[in-house]
């Protein structure tokens, strides 16, 4: 079976597509397009809201309410929205499926980003915040220059889990007749073409791992080294950090 899967993945026809089939490259583009739109939209919604709630300490009940939404099965919500929205579009358009899918993807991606941003701002050391105010920073300055950079690690973990959920759910979107890499899984299943089905699984898993890796790299180069304690050994800062680590300071 594994040999058949490798053969399927090695076939150029499967990557570029033929007259009758859509290739892996095209489906990958579709998958990425939905995912990027959904994650960006969720960032636009979740990040400012999370920062505002964390900074002002108001409307915190919104956060616990959002967590309750996580008990909803995604497939069910997807099918429900498709069934509600799709019949209102006629003719040769897939808008009736794309719109509900995007709604579900955005709904999925907002809670982790929002609650992690909120938690990140909440978890900023009060002494650091007080010091910033004591230096004469205004509220917005504290938010942008102190709270936001300090909460980046948690914001990134929220963004990464949101991205993974979006990629996973965009796969299921193929079940409601949409494109994307999930197409190979559901088509393979329907045609009992198991190498195609399993290759679809390999591609989706690879996409998720690569997306997470890319975000991990972005995180590495955007989060302040003062937070991650990653200093190169050759610099003075590195020596100090190593001393602190030996003294067990990083546990405080």
């Amino acid at each position: 079976m594994i040999g058949n899967v490798l053969r399927w993945l090695n076939d150029p026809d499967n990557w570029n597509g033929t007259q009758f089939t859509t290739g892996i490259w095209a489906q990958l583009q579709t998958h990425l397009l939905y995912s990027v739109i959904a994650v960006l939209a969720a960032l636009v919604i979740g990040l400012p809201l999370g920062l505002a709630i964390g900074h002002t300490g108001r409307a915190t009940s919104l956060i616990s309410g959002l967590n309750a939404v996580r008990a909803l099965p995604t497939v069910g919500v997807l099918v429900l929205l498709v069934v509600i929205i799709a019949p209102h579009f006629h003719g040769r358009t897939s808008k009736g499926y794309i719109i509900p899918t995007l709604i579900v993807l955005i709904l999925l991606a907002v809670p982790p980003i929002l609650s992690n941003t909120y938690a990140g701002v909440q978890n900023v050391d009060p002494a650091v915040r007080d010091a910033a105010y004591g230096m004469g920073m205004t509220g917005p300055q504290v938010l942008w220059r102190v709270e936001l950079p300090n909460s980046l690690p948690l914001i990134f973990s929220g963004l990464r889990s949101a991205t993974l959920q979006v990629i996973a759910t965009a796969t299921i979107a193929a079940y409601v007749t949409l494109g994307g890499l999930g197409r190979f899984i559901y088509d393979g299943l329907a045609q009992q073409d198991y190498p195609q089905m399993i290759s679809g699984g390999v591609l989706v898993a690879a996409l998720a791992l690569i997306a997470d890796l890319v975000l991990a790299l972005v995180q590495r180069y955007t989060v302040s080294r003062g937070l991650t304690k990653r200093f190169s050994k050759s610099t003075v800062g590195g020596a100090v950090a190593a001393d602190l680590e030996e003294a067990g300071v990083e546990h405080t």
Partner: peptide
């Protein structure tokens, strides 16, 4: 935990 569920479902048997 990164691997999407539907992908893991089809990857487990092979």
């Amino acid at each position: 935990y990164t691997i999407p569920s539907i992908a893991l479902f089809v990857l487990v048997p092979p």
